[in-house]
Amino acid sequence: MRLAFMGSPDFAVPALRALHEAGHEIAAVYCQPPRPAGRGQRETPCPVHRAALELGLPVRTPARLKRDAAEHESFAALNLDAAVVAAYGLILPRAMLDAPRRGCLNIHASLLPRWRGAAPIHAAILAGDAQTGITIMRMEEGLDTGPMLLEQAIPIGPDATVQALHDALAAMGARLILRALEEDPPAIPQPEDGATYAPKLTKQDGRLDWAQAAAALERRVRALNPWPGTFFEHGGEQVRVLAARVEAGTGAPGTLLDDAALVACGAGALRLLRLQRPGRAALDATEFLRGFALPRGAVLG
């Protein structure tokens, strides 16, 4: 089948590789343009860009699509059977959605209509959902509102991290898109009720609000690391929290209840297990506390 692949981050790479290995003709790979990264701020291609070059596939990196008639014509000229989209990062205009014969098929990391939007994996952990999954949908102009072709669920365990769930869903998405292309299942409209939205995350989403319940904060730690990262402020520094555990404890929210990093929350307490200062290595709490005091009674920001 003649395809275009449209994706940018690590999540999309397994699907690109699976399509290539299955023998599909990938006429073009679309991804975000290279951007400055690292200490030297060197122009760096995204993960899909790097994978496409490794596979010898042609890459296109338009900065915008919405009102670019030349891009629309170039896309239509590819004469595609379908386009596969996975976390691309740009909105596809109607002219591009309608160009492939079987439309544009999206690999979405949730059980639609729950968690439409930019950060569905994070949102599922934050909400304490028991499961999430992959939906293959045919795209339309609405935000993740198109009809569904295939869906598969995966449980979210009590210790699930966003990275582990991300990797499992990326592999699942690669398997399901191959099935969708081979089987061409009937499209089923999404239910009208039950839609929820997962907006794009910002750095401030990682600030730990100690007035929240400890269970909610522990989920936030698992959901938002490595990015945007969860943190508190103390002693003029922003300290990242990389792992934590819910424990019993009461006190004014943000107050340290012992000398081993147990913090009172709105309900229960949170034991900080792994921490990191700016520019330093991540350390287990016992080692971290040898060089950064978090004494009983202090209040964290």
Rank of each mutant, 00 (worst) to 15 (best):
G279N: 01
Q41F: 14
L256W: 00
V241W: 05
A87Y: 11
D81S: 13
R60T: 06
L270C: 00
E151F: 03
P34H: 05
R101G: 07
T145A: 02
P189G: 00
C31G: 15
V221D: 06
P45K: 01
F288M: 05
L105Q: 13
A37I: 02
G229N: 04
A285N: 08
E218W: 10
P120S: 02
D193G: 10
G133I: 01
A123Y: 15
A119D: 03
A22K: 07
G40H: 12
R102F: 14
K66E: 15
Q238I: 11
P14V: 07
R2D: 04
G251H: 02
R102K: 07
A95D: 01
D259S: 10
I121R: 07
G235N: 00
D159W: 05
G142T: 00
T250A: 15
H122F: 11
L92N: 12
E192H: 06
E71M: 15
L149R: 03
C265S: 02
T230M: 10
E192N: 03
T255D: 01
A83R: 08
V246C: 10
A248D: 14
A52H: 06
A244R: 13
R296E: 12
L273E: 14
R280V: 03
L270Q: 01
C104V: 15
F232K: 00
E25T: 14
A293D: 07
L53F: 14
K203W: 12
S110F: 13
G251E: 06
G103Q: 02
G236K: 10
E287D: 15
G249T: 08
E182Q: 15
A187P: 08
A243S: 10
G268E: 08
L19D: 01
H122W: 02
P113H: 06
M96T: 05
P58C: 12
K203I: 13
Q152K: 01
R116W: 15
R220Y: 11
E140W: 09
M172R: 04
A285W: 13
L262F: 03
E54P: 01
A264N: 08
A244S: 14
L273T: 02
R240D: 05
E183M: 05
T132F: 09
D98C: 11
